[in-house]
Structures are given as structure tokens and as C-alpha cells.
Amino acid sequence: MLAKRIIPCLDVRHGKVVKGINFEGVRDVGDPVACAAEYNRQGADEIVFYDIVASYEGRGTFLDVVRETAKQVFVPLTVGGGISTVADMREALRAGADKISINSAAVKNPQLISEGAEIFGSQCIVVGIDAKRNKDGGFTVYVNGGRVAMPVDLLDWVVEVERRGAGEICLNSIDTDGVRGGFDIEMLQAVCKRVKIPVIASGGAGKLSDFASVFQQTTVTAALAASLFHFGELTIPEVKADCRAKGIAMR
């Protein structure tokens, strides 16, 4: 049976991990390569690197991090942040990324999804989406790190994302992100019902049982978290043990 995936996300700025990590045995807690190796050791099913600055000048440093990690970590690596052209995708894949995550650039230029899928294969293309409830009871897509609302309905957008050949959707709920009250079950399930491609839950994990809950209440195939794992509040083995105890298939 296909296992549900637990995915830690590392936010990288100028070649360093942004949020503080409390890992035993990792001396340089800002070193993204060491952190990725530690997540790998803990049993992470994939690792996401997110370039939060995504400046032209910092690109080389960021890709060096990906390149070094790919030499030491043997689970799939996803790279996101600042990818807005096919050339950016190619560069990240050549550095050792297995998947590319695009977000704002896809909303502004949906053709980017089709081109990426055609050239590199659907399995490479993850479309990240930030969305928030609106006053009409629907969900609106946001760009630029969740700061700018677009005139795009979430449930229309996910259908287009799938039609254009994306391999996965990583859905971040702005409503639950940072609140730590659990994943946005309602929004996730609405999206899961609309598309056949795998959906990754993001935003809102605050306690151990939140992971099992999202797998029990929606059909997402993976759950992503950043700060929860960064600060060592929860470890990946703890999360997996809890899910397993509740009958959810885990690696």
C-alpha cells in the first residue's frame, strides 16, 4: 500500500536555514545541508527547500545548497521559491532537485505549468497554492507569499493546474497557516474532490494528532510542515508513530 508522506520544509535565506533548529548532534543549525541530512535520518519522505529571498544574486548560493544535499541525501528533493521560467526549472533539476515547486509564477503565467510538464514530465512539477476564504464562502488564490489576492477562485484554479499537467498540488491555507490549530480540513477536502492528482496539505500543523487527522479526514497523500519540525517541537518519528498507531500506512 502506498504510504502517506511526511515532508519537512526548510526555508533558506542566503544559503542558511532561516528558522532556528534544535537538532541534537547538528552543530551548525543554520546549515541547510546538515538539517536535510538530519531530516533524512529521521525518516522524512521528501525534503523541500524553499528559497525565501529568491534574488538573482543569491541564486547560485541556493543551488549550491541543493547540489550538496543531493550528494548526501537520498530521498526526493523539491525546490521552490523564485522559479518563474523553464530555464530556472532546468537549473534546479540539474543541481539535483527531483521536483520543482512553482506558485505565484504559475498564477501569473499558467503556461509555465504546461511547458514544465511537457519538457521535464508531470512528476517534476508541483504547483504550490496559497488560498484564503472569501466573504462569499469560497476560496481565493493569493500570490507573492500570500500577500496579494488574485481574482482567481481556488476550485477553478486547481482544475486548470491539473489540466495543464501538474503532477501534484501543495495547498497552503492562509487561514490556518501559523495558527497551529490543525490543517484546513475543509479547504483541503474541497480541493481533493476536484482533482485526481495528489494533494499535499500545508499550513496549520500545531500538534501531533493534526497529521493523523488530516489523513483520516481528507484524501491528501502528504502533509508538510516547517517550523514545527524546525524547532524540534515534534520529530518525524513521533508523527509517523502516531499515524501508524491510527492505522495510516507510513514508511
Partner: peptide
């Protein structure tokens, strides 16, 4: 099932 078969399987 979802195609592609993507992820960790036993």
C-alpha cells in the same frame, strides 16, 4: 488509483 504511481510503497 492516482496515476502516476508516485511515492513510497511497500
Amino acid at each position: 488509483v492516482i496515476i502516476p504511481h508516485m511515492g513510497w510503497n511497500e
